[in-house]
């Protein structure tokens, strides 16, 4: 099995001078194996570590311990051959104020071999984005679109997106979801790791979902598998210890237990959507 994205015991201590968070870790022993072609939704509350995880995977942040790899190469030492196959859109669009969209693309094309102005122009047209305007003339939503166009311009094999749709209208969001799967047939499906609070959007496209809380992976599971096998059952008393198949106990709503029905029969257990699971895992 080859993994497009891997992390082993990835840990990042917060800075010692951050007194309020002196005892917490931004990332706390993250183990992750994302198979090629997976579309992973990265879900968690504000401050759970989503952005830090993405930035650490990209090598923009050096972990205190542990390591990660993208397309088999260590994050902290990505060769150009791997960089060219990556796409990343930061939460806050990282643009040059005075450059137009087109100039951004030309600058990228000068450095990276696989940047296609044609792909980018087609995508921009689909997103109803003008490439002729300077970045500082664009609305926040359009800046976000430009950032996505840039992330996709090299038709990347691995795409990391940090809240890519937060400022987009519902129609643009739909177009972005479609664009993630490529404007043309790809021999191998793209691997995508996408953080978002727009869970209904994620429910359309993800193959896997990664729930993060306080820098830890709480649950990493196939989305279809979750829908088919995980259920919520009422359980007023916190169990002294979770037995196999019992995934999480939440005090929420009179006491709830998240169970895997393959190990724990739960007749009448309630089906869950992504928001339900996130709520259970965070209470």
């Amino acid at each position: 099995m080859t993994y497009a994205i891997e992390a082993r015991q990835l840990t990042l201590d917060r800075r010692a001078d951050s007194w309020s968070a002196a005892r917490t870790r931004a990332l706390d022993g993250i183990d992750l194996h994302v198979p090629e072609g997976a579309v992973v939704g990265l879900v968690g509350r504000n401050g759970a570590g989503k952005t830090t995880l993405l930035r650490t995977l990209l090598g923009l942040v050096t972990p205190t311990r542990g390591q990660s790899r993208l397309l088999g190469a260590p994050s902290l030492d990505l060769p150009d051959a791997v960089r060219e196959r990556l796409g990343y859109a930061a939460q806050t669009p990282d643009l040059f104020r005075r450059l137009t969209g087109l100039s951004h693309l030309e600058e990228m094309a000068a450095v990276y071999a696989h940047v296609s102005l044609k792909v980018a122009a087609t995508l921009a047209a689909r997103l109803d984005l003008s490439l002729g305007k300077r970045a500082d003339e664009l609305s926040l939503g359009d800046q976000q679109k430009l950032s996505l166009v840039l992330a996709l311009a090299n038709d990347p094999d691995v795409l990391l997106l940090d809240e890519p749709m937060a400022s987009l209208d519902p129609l643009s969001r739909r177009d972005v979801l479609r664009a993630l799967f490529g404007l043309r047939e790809r021999p191998e499906p793209r691997t995508v790791l996408i953080s978002s609070h727009l869970l209904a959007d994620l429910e359309r496209i993800v193959s896997h979902v990664l729930f993060l809380r306080e820098g830890r992976v709480q649950l990493f599971i196939g989305w279809d598998e979750l829908l088919e096998h995980l259920r919520r059952v009422s359980c007023p008393q916190r169990p002294p210890a979770l037995s196999p198949g019992q995934l999480h106990w939440s005090a929420h709503d009179g006491g709830q237990l998240l169970v895997d029905t393959r190990l724990v029969p739960a007749p009448g257990g309630a089906c869950l959507d992504m928001t339900d699971v996130m709520e259970l895992l965070n209470t």
Partner: peptide, 14 residues
């Protein structure tokens, strides 16, 4: 597959 995925904005793999 592509037609269905595009029409519903869902993952073609699904």
């Amino acid at each position: 597959v592509r037609t269905v995925a595009e029409a519903h904005a869902v993952n073609p793999m699904t």
